[in-house]
Design a protein around this nucleic acid. Structure first.
Lengths: 341, 341
DNA sequence: CTGAAAGCGCTAACAG
DNA sequence: CTGTTAGCGCTTTCAG
């Protein structure tokens, strides 16, 4: 005669229906604010539901509604200061819409990237936002016809048929160079990682364009594309300075690199911007840190995240699988002038 | 005669069953690696499934299995450099276990905190990890009997009956003070935010304990508890210096504050640590940034996140609702000596 | 080894 | 306004 307390399993609409002496479909209507229930019944149902501590089972709802109220956000590394703001924009906008966001960190591993796409598909998310590791792999197109709204964020493969939200990187690169030029710097270099897809190339080409426009030569020696680590910026600039023949100003492909460059310059006993000016890209939080005070080209990260969600919302509303009428958003970068140039 | 292509809705096990000419329960068995299917059938099913691009519907599975393979992580602000590593630890450990993590950002809003708990419950997550805004609100206990594994992360209400993972904050405060004392500083101050629950109080009391142990007085004027912003550290130390009567060293309740303090000191033309030494708490990434090089008490953030997931896993395995046999993990803080003290 | 059948909790026609 | 009836896609007894 087992007598242990019944597993306090959550109340269902059936329990409510019994308690109210009505059918459970009426309960469903009442709770969902659908019409076709008398105000009396509705009130009664609500009271009972509350009394029982009832809350709906979103999984069951998701199964029948074919909408789970969830989104997937895939990023390389939440620990990289560029991504938290992107994630915040996504999370905030999504939650305002009643959507929950899965955080999927790939650790720069393309395999994990693919695995996560599959997992999200299985979980029946209502949309996927992908901040890809490399701008070259067409993750969405690879899986023949994604059956749900998808958008690339921050970086997008070149001829994708999916939606994306990116910054105008050419313009960003141009802006950086023009700023330097107008401040009187003539010999300007460009330092970045080599991987990163179109985004980097575009920043670089914006730089080249500006130089050409102002009739300034781009010296091959002054363009270095290695990797994205802070360390790397430090080393590159150290070598440049050691060579006794270095540019007057440097554009960094992102802020982390710029930070490394500043350190390198200071370590050599030189001054920023007097001996060498620096401008970064992204505007990560540390850039605005007093003692650092890095001039940079800001990407509107939070707004980018929000925009990505809005595209998903839009795509959902239009019943578009995701690749029929893609939305393309190209955000304007913003020059943030601080003290390094 | 409508002829538009049928919505390419995903294949189900029923489609596979038809194609294979068997019942769909056999398909389920085959796909799930359960025994009771001939190797022949299994292979056949797998082939067909692959051919149809089949993938399971995790929502349907979740409904019947009563396990969704999802976790909820509630944090105040992913943009605060303390949280990304916590989140990374959680995400990585969870994903290794095949679990997906919902990122829930509360923006320091207690109302959002509660709403998210409710939402996660509805979504039938298998566990909730909560890094609470304040150490005083017993979010889990407030909802009478959480029906699933729950763990507080980083900060826990005092007499909670739920599991938690925290750092030994008393020890951390003690460590900070002792380090300073042993380096010869005598007049030591303590700066922190006022809110933050037990964690702050504990750090403070660790500091007081060390001072007492070494027979050093704690001056009331040297203890300031305002808020957690970098700005605030900057202002507090500026005021101290202006008063011409300031401590020789300062313990900051977290690194952000410490950063502000360093700036303030430098701005006054003084030197760290010669004129005033500083030690922080947390070890956020910026702390190790060269030109900053902040000494601090590190919290093992990634491991803390991992530990929280492991507790959830444990609780799930033991079929514990969450408050029967809570697990308590108290991590050791680690002294990181850099150049500010 | 395999199939039939009963749900998981809920929504959504369809009758009344 | 309300109840009945099908499922959503899948797991899991229970018979065969």
């Amino acid at each position: 005669m087992k007598d242990r307390p019944v597993q306090p399993s959550r109340a269902t609409i059936i329990d409510i229906a019994k308690a109210a002496g009505i059918s459970y479909s009426s309960v469903s209507r009442a709770l969902n604010g659908l019409k076709g229930v008398s105000e009396d019944t509705r009130r009664k149902v609500r009271d009972i539901a509350e009394g029982m501590g009832y809350f709906p089972n979103a999984v069951a709802q998701g199964l029948v509604r074919r909408r789970t109220g969830t989104l997937g956000l895939i990023i390389p590394d939440i620990t990289n200061p560029f991504y938290p703001e992107l994630a915040l924009g996504v999370e905030e906008r999504a939650s305002r819409e009643g959507l929950c966001t899965f955080l999927c960190n790939t650790d720069y591993d393309p395999k994990k990237e693919k695995t996560y796409i599959k997992t999200l598909l299985e979980k029946q998310v209502d949309g996927i936002i992908l901040a890809p590791i490399s701008g070259t792999a067409n993750l969405f197109e690879e899986r023949h016809n994604m059956p749900l709204p998808c958008v690339y964020l921050g970086n997008a493969p070149e001829n994708t048929k999916y939606s994306y939200v990116v910054t105008d990187n050419v313009r960003g690169g141009y802006l950086a160079a023009r700023t330097l030029i107008e401040k009187g710097y003539r010999r300007i270099g460009f330092v970045s990682g080599s991987e990163g897809g179109s985004a980097v190339d575009e920043r670089h080409s914006g730089f080249v364009e500006a130089m050409r426009r102002y009739d300034l030569p781009v010296r091959e020696d002054d363009v270095r594309r290695e990797d994205w680590r802070l360390q790397s910026g430090h080393e590159i600039v150290s070598r440049m300075i050691d060579s006794k023949d270095h540019p007057e100003a440097l554009i960094a492909g992102n802020d982390l690199l710029a930070l490394g460059i500043i350190l390198g310059i200071r370590e050599k006993g030189l001054k920023v911007p007097d001996d060498m000016a620096v401008i970064g890209f992204d505007d990560i939080p540390t850039a605005s840190f007093p003692g650092i005070d890095l001039s940079t080209i800001r990407q509107p990260k939070i707004r980018m995240g929000e925009a990505a969600v809005e595209i998903i919302l839009d795509l959902i509303a239009s019943g578009d699988g995701g690749d029929k009428s893609p939305r393309r958003v190209i955000m304007d970068p913003e020059l943030v002038l601080r003290s390094t140039c």
